[in-house]
């Protein structure tokens, strides 16, 4: 039995690739903002070099989970967690692991594009500057490679020294992607990267995600079911801080096992 949504949403078959099936492994993870429990008993494995989408209604904890993967939530006061998250077998809460080195391996793109008030060039190479790279040739190389991967090179190659704040919204978001991948992280986290963009810019970024997954493991939070269906290999559906269903995107959209999931993707709530 096909849910009605299957006719509307075209689903790409999941990519079959080499790599660890439990590259990122989240185990019985719970999370509190002060007294408020935002996540409860999350357990899921994210395979290497695949795209995983987190979907669910607003406030269900998608961003919270995503921001735990690079410990961005450490910035918030009064947080607490239980359970564990491992990347490539190693716990990200390992006291011997520095948060900084974790974040260097896990890049992040935010919902609202946030370029620095610096030149385009300096924005892209910021992550390299931070680790002390000074060699101009290395920086220029990294800048070009990242901008090419982010499909922005042709548009900005003649004005690398102009302020990044003069770019359009879509360009800024692609610049943020270029910045996030400049120091070759292994994982790329994207929190609703297209929510503020027009359809053309969105299309470009979705194409980009297809190309990037050749090299990176990508976790993307999205509000748009169509987008999840178009770009992801696996999809996790959350509701009120709980993980309702996690499976291949095809399965989730064509044949969800939970009634809640079906209700959500067919647009009956959320």
């Amino acid at each position: 039995m096909n849910p009605p949504s299957a006719q509307r949403i075209k689903v790409r078959p999941a990519a079959e690739r080499e790599g660890r099936k439990d590259y990122i492994s989240i185990r019985d993870f719970g999370f509190w903002y002060g007294e408020k429990k935002a996540l409860d008993a999350i357990s899921l494995d994210i395979p290497e070099r695949q795209v995983v989408a987190f979907i669910g209604p607003s406030g269900c904890g998608k961003s919270t989970l995503l921001r735990n993967l690079n410990r961005m939530n450490d910035l918030v006061d009064g947080i607490r967690h239980e359970g564990d998250i491992t990347i490539n077998g190693r716990s990200i809460y390992d006291p011997g692991l520095e948060v900084i080195s974790l974040r260097r391996r896990v890049g992040m793109v935010f919902q609202k594009s946030n370029p620095f008030p610096k030149s385009i060039f300096e924005n892209v190479v910021y992550a390299l500057r931070v680790v002390g790279v000074r060699d101009r040739a290395v920086l220029e190389e990294a800048c070009e490679t990242s901008l090419r991967k982010a499909a922005l090179w042709d548009e900005v190659k003649d004005r690398l020294n102009d302020s990044a704040l003069g770019l359009s919204g879509g360009q800024m978001q692609r610049l943020c992607i270029a910045r996030a991948i400049a120091n070759r992280p292994e994982i790329l986290l994207m929190d609703e990267p297209c929510s503020a963009l027009d359809p053309i810019a969105t299309g470009k970024i979705e194409e980009l995600i297809h190309e990037l997954k050749e090299q990176f493991t990508i976790v993307i939070v999205t509000h748009s079911m169509q987008q999840a269906a178009r770009v992801s290999d696996r999809t996790a559906f959350f509701y009120l801080g709980k993980q309702v269903e996690y499976d291949t995107t095809e399965k989730i959209f064509m044949n969800p096992s939970q009634a809640q999931t079906e209700a959500y993707i067919s647009g009956r709530f959320g």
């Binding site: 890049g107 935010f110 946030n114 992550a127 931070v130």
Partner: peptide, 18 residues
Amino acid sequence: VPRGMREASLATGASKWQ
């Protein structure tokens, strides 16, 4: 200073001082 800018810097692996 917008929070996003701070987060963007930290997310690229910059230290607090950087």
